[in-house]
């Protein structure tokens, strides 16, 4: 009897959950996302590069920083050949292998900086939009400082500080990530604030207030889930921006010299573009591809998640 009962219950419960899932926002979004070929292409690009980063020791043809062509043939900057498919660089490292090893670092900076920037943006956007008044005024003035000033230049000064002050045990790449994150929240905070202002008008917020819910509860339990679709899109695009900024900073010589990233490779290449074009062209191609992947994904998500665009 007992067994039969439970057997009977299971399908019913499943059917219920299935029905619920059938109408959820996320499954609608996923259904729309699947139709968007450009967004799927973006996802494939990102997937491929993540795969490359995870299995880098298997994919790369030489060990990390191994001076392949210098040790084996006594030459540096060798053109692409069957042996070194993307050629070798200024100290004789295989460009392809270095790109593979760099993938993990590039993704680390992208995701890390975006996580920092978005956490700040969410907290500031929520507080500013929901509480309003003087707090809003003050926070938005601070946000404006970060929006108005050409931040790349100031970022350089702060990167210099970070590399001077960071204890040697802390990875240089983490410092770079932190700095990029701390300088790129402002625009996102402002957009999230705008969304919060919109969500705040809804009746369910008023209902929650009249039930006596605290400000913080309303902010994080009711407002945040309803601006989440914007947050997801902004995060994706922020990853793309962070990757571009890291590449730029490394190119200018303010990155972490001890970690290999595609921007670092381009910096080394820039001294001899004429003699060894392969040294810079391939890493740059990978930066463009990855950034394009995140941009396509972000735009696809925006179309899929926007509740105003319903079929």
């Amino acid at each position: 009897m007992k067994i039969r009962k439970s057997k009977k219950n299971v399908p019913v419960r499943q059917a219920e959950t299935k029905q619920k899932k059938g109408v959820s926002q996320w499954s609608i979004a996923w259904r729309r996302f699947k139709k968007n070929k450009a967004a799927l292409a973006g996802l494939v690009i990102i997937g491929a590069i993540v795969f490359m980063a995870i299995f880098s020791p298997l994919i790369a043809r030489y060990p990390l920083n191994y001076l392949a062509s210098l040790k084996e043939e006594g030459k540096i900057r060798m053109p692409p050949s069957a042996r070194y498919i993307f050629g070798t660089d200024y100290v004789g490292r295989d460009v392809f292998s270095q790109i593979v090893y760099g993938a993990g670092n590039v993704l680390y900076v992208g995701f890390g900086a975006a996580a920092i920037a978005m956490s700040l943006a969410i907290v500031i956007g929520l507080i500013s939009g929901y509480i309003g008044g003087i707090v809003d005024n003050l926070l938005m003035r601070i946000t404006e400082i970060f929006l108005v000033i050409p931040f790349l230049l100031i970022l350089l000064v702060f990167l210099k500080v970070a590399t001077t002050l960071a204890p040697s045990g802390v990875g240089g790449l983490s410092t770079v990530t932190l700095m990029i994150g701390l300088f790129s929240w402002a625009a996102n905070a402002r957009i999230i604030r705008g969304e919060v202002l919109r969500v705040k008008q809804n009746e369910y917020i008023e209902a929650s207030m009249s039930l006596g819910a605290s400000k913080w509860r309303i902010m994080f339990r009711h407002v945040l889930p309803n601006v989440l679709h914007v947050v997801i899109v902004l995060t994706t695009l922020q990853i793309a921006t962070a990757i571009l900024v890291e590449a730029a900073v490394s190119f200018l010589g303010f990155g972490d010299p001890n970690s290999i990233t595609w921007g670092q490779q381009l910096q080394g290449a820039s001294e001899a573009v004429k003699e060894a074009w392969w040294e810079g062209v391939f890493p740059g191609l990978f930066i463009t591809l990855l950034v394009l992947g995140f941009s396509l994904l972000g735009n696809g998500l925006r179309d899929a998640l926007d509740p105003r665009l319903r079929e």
């Binding site: 793309a240 571009l244 590449a247 730029a248 190119f251 921007g263 381009l266 290449a269 820039s270 573009v273 004429k274 074009w277 810079g280 062209v281 740059g284 930066i287 463009t288 950034v291 394009l292 941009s295 396509l296 735009n299």
Partner: peptide, 22 residues
């Protein structure tokens, strides 16, 4: 335009120099 926003400007600079200058 989308692809244009994804190319790092220094990369575009290097490639342009490579093609039109060298």
């Amino acid at each position: 335009s989308l692809v244009g926003t994804c190319i790092p400007i220094f990369y575009m600079g290097i490639v342009t120099i490579l093609i039109f200058s060298y």
